[in-house]
Design a protein around this nucleic acid. Structure first.
Lengths: 310, 310
DNA sequence: AACTCCTATGCTCAAACTGAGCATAATTCG
DNA sequence: CGAATTATGCTCAGTTTGAGCATAGGAGTT
């Protein structure tokens, strides 16, 4: 079957964790994700992403995985004759390097873009945000629609005694978009019936980059629960608390220390180095390293959860 | 950033379950997956898939989800000046309709393509296949490489007392490809050092369609364990055994009946219709229907496993 | 030295979940 | 009526999960 011709670009969600802050690499003063053209010289899409990311940012990319391919006509609506643009997005895990800043790339806290996703201090969400969403539900055309909207809001944001599900980052963002609360919605012509004053709605990004970032965060939060990918973000040696802080940073919620430790140990994900960490005013902690061989030993997918539970 | 121009096509893995047989829709006498061009008139990629699938096959598509985007240069290596081809694959769930056969489309048992994936009778795999893979490991250049290969084989196929993981369909296929055992490998110029005689290696497909099918099966097997997507494949009313047979067909292994029943009921995924099924020579079974409202009530992703465990 | 504060680390326990099996109910078939 | 067959209810041990108590090993303070 003959396929039509389109323009293709690669978009990367590059993630690092520094201390307790999850970071994402951005360009254009934090308003865009880095992207590059799909070039014929690359053997594969993934090779293409690796190539230009490593060249541009001088970051070794450990783990790379495809996220999603977008091609909505809404996006980049250029002149029609030119053809539609396809964006293939990738998630990459790395460690933050001393910023070279030569190309305007910068690491930013991803919660600057999604403040409502950080539940590490105070597991109860922002009541004003819940109220604004309720206003949106109330503004629906019919009573039935109001109930449907209110249910979606309650499920997505864990209201009415429901449990917060940290993995549905994208659903929450899309709900806020639909409600006209995030800045991108106004840009795209969606009207807002709520009072946005004083709400922490995060920094907007160009095009649908914030949506892609949400997709990446969601994927990563899901992945750390069944694959030991956190270690791609860790230095060669770390304490168990370092590891826990990283997982918490990604998951956006606090974990029970002893249980986290139990999980890590019974999974045999790490081994002692014999070295102790720098004293920090408490009992000194052992430094561990990742047991890289577990990646081959096990068929990850449906086995036990490597990290993050509660 | 200016993106280069490429050709784009959509490829669909359409799945149905009839009785105890998982089926996939194929064209070209079972040698290809249905595919269509990405057309500018479609609002989105998903809309494009829906449109041409429903027009071509007259099947209503319930659930549609993006699988993966391929663009390796190995694929469809056409004349270089023409540009690279991008294939965006989708997984679609539907129910088998009386075949209209007007366009050469036909439903086929997906285990015809992956015989080793069906472990419903005899949970122990084909010893001859294991032997052929061992031969491949032994044919490695170095001793270390032999051990590495043997480990990969053992993990992927659940050898040496390891547990069979039904979700890593793609890994197993790629291992067989690498070992030169599947027909596509020979076609692509990979030599085989094992004796292939008498092995059940499945029907080949054109291009990398069997790989895409493997991706779809893997995704679906994973998905049914945490999202109630099986119901997209069920008729409006069904017995619990029907449901179990469908899940078993997809998962490729048998489930403990009572535990399956317990899972379905405690998840409140179904409700009684009050109607009894046709007598089949045993105690008559109740007919159930899916409680469609659970899709909205819950935030599926990280909650309890809807189906399939043991 | 005694005390406080802090983080690391070990251990316990109940609730929930899983995997497996026993037992009984309601039919059809011969 | 008994055998075969399928549906359905219930039990039970082993494991996992969530939460808390207790102790260990350091630094700084009095």
């Amino acid at each position: 079957m003959q396929a039509s011709s389109v323009a293709a670009e690669l978009i990367a969600v590059l993630v690092a964790v520094t201390g307790s802050t999850p970071k994402v690499l951005t360009i254009a003063e934090g308003k865009s994700l880095p992207s590059g053209p799909l070039s014929p010289e690359h053997r594969s899409l993934q090779a293409g992403v690796r190539a230009w990311v490593e060249r541009q940012t001088h970051h070794p990319l450990g783990y790379v995985e495809q996220l999603y391919t977008f091609a909505d006509n809404d996006r980049n609506a250029g002149p029609r004759g030119y053809g539609r643009a396809i964006s293939i997005s990738y998630l990459g895990l790395t460690r933050e390097q001393p910023s070279t800043e030569d190309d305007g790339a910068a690491w930013g806290d991803w919660y600057d873009y999604f403040p409502w996703e950080d539940r590490r201090r105070g597991s109860t969400g922002d009541p004003a945000l819940a109220q604004a969403l309720q206003d949106w539900a109330d503004a629906a055309a019919s009573n039935a629609q109001t109930r449907a909207r209110a249910l979606r809001v309650a499920v997505a944001f864990g209201l009415d005694g429901r449990r917060w599900n940290e993995e549905i980052v994208l659903q929450r963002y899309e709900l806020l978009y639909e409600a006209g609360l995030v800045a991108e919605a106004a840009r795209d012509g969606i009207t807002c019936h709520s009072n946005r004053a004083g709400l922490a709605l995060g920094r907007p990004m160009q095009q649908d980059h914030r949506r892609i970032l949400a997709t990446g965060i969601a994927r990563l939060r899901a992945k750390i629960t069944y694959r030991p990918v956190v270690f791609e973000l860790m230095p060669p040696m770390f304490t168990l608390l370092d590891l826990q802080r990283s997982v918490e940073a990604l998951a956006g919620r606090l974990l029970h220390k002893q249980n986290f430790r139990r999980l890590v140990e019974q999974q045999e994900l790490v081994e002692e180095t014999g070295i102790m960490a720098e004293p920090t005013g408490g009992r000194p902690a052992k430094l561990f390293r990742f047991r890289a061989d577990v990646l081959q030993e096990r068929a990850y997918a449906g086995t036990k959860p490597p990290l993050a539970r509660s």
